[in-house]
Design a protein around this nucleic acid. Structure first.
Lengths: 244, 244
DNA sequence: GCCGGGGTTTGACCACGGTCAAAACCGCGC
DNA sequence: GCGCGGTTTTGACCGTGGTCAAACCCCGGC
């Protein structure tokens, strides 16, 4: 087996994906990668609406999105829902469960999706012998924290319109990093999900999409959103609060 | 030197404080503690208003509050400020800087305070030989993330009054964990800070304090807040969203 | 094709909380 | 003590965005 075929093998592999999909950009040798792969497990695809883990359940593993997309949310005692985030390929999920051994939120698929599972017990063993991995894990979690804070700024005192503009822009940026066309978004979540995520009413989201469409900034058709004037979108976002 | 005197020495020491003040509750031997202490450095007290680190500056260390209190915030390009959090003794600060080598926010003292510094480079060395420490670090950061998300739920679609009630209750709980009287709060931050933290106008915060006072729930006098009816405070918070 | 239902859009109305302004309060220095 | 400046409180008004409700649209099933 040549080193090249080793690499090919890794590329098809979930552990490699977890590391490589730009969220754990760490210099590990092929050997180390193979060790890590032992901890990763591909999972069956999830259908739309299926949950990956749910609020309160015992923590056991982290998950990396491989294809499709998911949402995470918490449910209040009166059935009220707050969307915490949307997760695209390469995103890591379940980090919140580390603290107290229980997942603090639920993760559900927005469309048919596949994820891979990194059992934490195994991850811990492996990382004991891979100091670089440990550092990268810290960096990833810290990054999630910073993104959360940045979202908090948005929810603080920003106008509804600006919130939506930021949302679209951030999705566009994430598309870019996935080498997808950053001007042609397909948003698999409902208006209600978007509204909850942004702290707005779903009608407001709908109205604002309409407004941005008549302004010639977007072309909106249900789940599909085209960005026609990126410059004017940036204007709407205004002086950036964005640090993530 | 007896083991006891070792422990006493540690107790006076900053590294010990960092670990022990209930945020890194890890089973480390006395030896290991001493190793860790080498990385911790006490710092000069900060005066009210002084900054510990500021947004955009190069990341170098984590900090643990020893006495007093601080706030963290981000500043937008137009001078608008968003408070991210308030930090009491035992709290760890600067985690956000791990991701991209720069602090994403500013930390400033709300009153005369002391902190200790954990230089990250040294912390990394030490943790390479202390796997338990590594795990605890992850747990601490994960905890910060969960708290951030919980705050996000509050900012999502909760009534102004409920936000303030939650704020007071959470402060009370933190007091309890510090073995302070949880019914007698002294809030060193300004109304404006509280308002920004909760996504409200400072007038609204003032009005709501007044309202809760006439309702007989609180006794408010500038920075000092007495909780008279904890039960009714909990009522205001309603079905708990709180998971942190 | 037709019907049914969930998601989405649009409209009319209204309330919560924001904004602007002034007064009151408090601490602090002289 | 007195007066000043910053913070907090209180008041009056108003606007953004939430709520309620109806129409609409698109997709799937029969």
């Amino acid at each position: 087996m040549t080193p090249d075929s080793d690499l090919d093998e890794l590329r098809r592999n979930c552990g490699y994906s977890a590391i490589h999909d730009f969220h754990l950009p760490v210099g590990l040798s092929v050997d180390e990668m193979q060790t890590l792969n032992a901890t990763a497990r591909d999972m069956l695809p999830l259908d739309r609406g299926q949950t990956l883990f749910s609020q309160g359940r015992k923590f056991g593993a982290l998950y990396v999105v491989r294809a499709g997309s998911l949402k995470t949310y918490v449910e209040g005692s009166e059935g009220d829902v707050q969307i915490l985030g949307f997760h695209l390929p390469g995103d890591i999920m379940g980090i919140g469960g580390l603290t107290n051994e229980h997942y603090p939120c639920t993760a559900a698929a927005l469309e048919r999706s596949t994820v891979c599972e990194l059992r934490y017990a195994q991850l811990q063993e492996v990382s004991a012998s891979l100091p670089a991995l440990n550092h990268q894990l810290l960096r990833v979690i810290s990054g999630a924290l910073v993104r959360e804070q940045s979202h908090l700024v948005l929810m603080g005192k920003q106008q509804a319109q600006r919130r939506l503009a930021f949302f679209v822009r951030r999705m566009s940026d994430r598309y870019a990093r996935l080498s997808r066309d950053p001007l042609t978004l397909s948003l698999p979540m409902s208006r209600e999900d978007i509204a909850s995520y942004l702290g707005l009413a779903l009608e407001t989201v709908s109205r604002l999409f309409g407004k941005m469409e008549s302004a010639g900034i977007l072309a909106v058709n249900r789940k599909s959103v085209q960005i026609l004037r990126r410059d004017r979108l940036d204007e709407l976002c205004g002086g950036d609060i964005d640090m993530a």
